[in-house]
């Protein structure tokens, strides 16, 4: 049974048909890559699935429950977590605090209980910091724990976003161009982290332009062009698909 099942998803912005009748599945404990040229509608798909946009038609079900039309924070509660193409870190907060915000739904302190700092709140905070330390180690950013997010180098910022998303303990992790701006070494490290995350039981849906990373870690690839799915399958087959080559390289009929 699939974890995420997208059926006939459709979205227009004025005259732009961003997503057209898109269907695909993500299975548990797999990494699925969503690739396509710039402007193919990949980020829109993310926004539709996580409640930042409403689809005009179609459905998306997660563990059998309809996702569409729910506000973003509810999709997090259901077990989806996402990162953004453009960093949305909490710049005034430290790396540790950013990760702690990711644990928001699993903590319980209300304004009132936090104000009196009840024993339960103290214990919860202590345990949360221990877990945050674990997540930061997993992603490899533990030495930046007390650094303000605004002072971080770009590559680390991407990893903090990943850590923050992981801190929600998602069953499906959705990453929007996680390797953008990373150098070769950092990208390789990221790939290893993602494989570890998958092996620990979390499915991943990743939008990415770095084909080395995509082909290296994905179990399956979906290719979209102008909002439409043009191919789907294992990386080795996708690399040879004529429709994919055409979308990426232009005309291939003239002897490519």
């Amino acid at each position: 049974m699939s974890l995420l099942s997208v059926r006939g998803l459709d979205k227009r912005f004025g005259g732009v048909h961003a997503v057209r009748d898109l269907s695909f599945d993500v299975h548990p404990q797999t990494i699925k890559a969503l690739i396509g040229p710039n402007g193919a509608g990949k980020s829109t798909v993310f926004n539709l699935l996580t409640g930042f946009e409403r689809p005009d038609a179609g459905s998306a079900t997660f563990e059998g429950i309809d996702l569409t039309g729910r506000p973003p924070h509810e999709t997090v509660r259901m077990g989806l977590a996402r990162t953004f193409q453009e960093s949305r870190l909490f710049d005034t907060m430290t790396v540790e605090e950013n990760v702690l915000v990711g644990m928001h739904l699993r903590l319980s302190a209300s304004f009132g209980l936090a104000a009196i700092r009840s024993p339960r709140v103290r214990r919860e905070e202590r345990e949360a910091r221990e877990e945050a330390a674990h997540v930061m180690r997993l992603v490899g950013i533990d030495r930046y724990r007390d650094t303000r997010a605004s002072d971080l180098p770009h590559g680390v910022r991407r990893l903090v976003e990943l850590a923050r998303a992981l801190a929600t303990r998602p069953r499906l992790l959705m990453l929007d161009e996680p390797a953008a701006g990373l150098d070769g070494r950092e990208t390789a490290d990221l790939g290893e982290v993602l494989l570890r995350v998958r092996d620990a039981g979390t499915a991943i849906l990743v939008v990415e332009h770095d084909m080395g990373l995509v082909m290296g870690i994905s179990d399956e690839v979906v290719v979209v062009d102008q909002g439409r799915k043009i191919a789907e399958g294992p990386p080795l087959i996708i690399q040879k698909d004529p429709a994919v080559l055409e979308a990426y390289l232009g005309e291939v009929s003239d002897g490519a």
Partner: peptide
């Protein structure tokens, strides 16, 4: 800091 970032954290 960022409302979309906050709602993406639940």
């Amino acid at each position: 800091c960022t409302e979309p970032g906050a709602s993406a954290c639940g």
